[in-house]
Simulated scan of single mutants.
Amino acid sequence: MTAQEKPRTVRLSVADWTSAALDLLVREGVAGVKISTLCAELGVTKGSFYWHFVDINALMAAVADQWCASQNDAVRGLDVLATMPVEQRLEWMASLLIEDRAWSVERAVRDWARTNEQVAASVQSLDQRILEVVTNTMEELGFDEADARLRAGTLVYAGIGFVHGRGSLPTPTLAEVRDIIAVLTSGNRPLA
């Protein structure tokens, strides 16, 4: 082993491992998160991994805990968002729809949620909270409850579609997202 290939001597924390595993999950999917790959990327031996985790399942449980905690923070951020003036709130939501890193993580986590109940519950909770905030925004704009929910649902489903369409469909620009929001927020008349 050359000096350049020598494993790290700095002890990694659980947070280092979970962060690296989440990055690998985003790049390779759940099946790509392997102990040997993580050790190679972090420049450590498998002994370092086993110092913190019994097995890969324990690591993935820690990653799920970390991600779910960050989503709880996101939900708390939605509470702050709900207090913003409507125009500022809509602009903030539009900018989120085109942020590459957020959508890469979102896509990977939604795929992971298909096989992990804890992650699935967190995704569902966050989706419900986002729908609630967007529905309330539409009601503040003067739409009745049914029309507000229809318009909010359209925006939320479009956002989820942006997640899964990335790479195979053109990514909308901020101006295009603003136009979509303008179409759904213009006029106080039912869509149907």
Rank of each mutant, 00 (worst) to 15 (best):
M60I: 10
A62Y: 00
S70W: 00
D127W: 07
D65Q: 01
A62F: 10
A82P: 11
D65Y: 00
A102L: 02
A58N: 05
S122D: 08
D111N: 08
G77T: 06
E91M: 01
L126A: 07
P85R: 05
L81A: 03
V134F: 12
A120I: 08
V105G: 02
L90Y: 06
R114N: 13
A94H: 00
V123C: 09
V80Y: 06
P85W: 05
V119S: 02
V80N: 14
L97W: 00
A120F: 00
W112E: 11
A64Q: 06
D100A: 15
I130V: 14
N116T: 13
D127T: 02
A61T: 15
S70Y: 09
N72R: 13
D111V: 07
L81H: 14
C68E: 11
Q124P: 09
S125H: 03
Q71H: 14
T137H: 10
D111A: 03
A82E: 09
Q66A: 11
Q66P: 09
R129M: 09
V80R: 15
C68N: 10
M93E: 05
A58T: 10
W92K: 01
R76D: 04
N136Y: 09
M93T: 02
D55T: 02
A102D: 10
E117A: 14
I130D: 09
T115V: 13
N136T: 11
T137E: 03
E132L: 09
S70I: 06
V123F: 03
S95R: 14
L78H: 01
E87L: 06
V134L: 10
D73Y: 11
A69R: 03
V133N: 06
T137D: 05
L81F: 01
E132G: 09
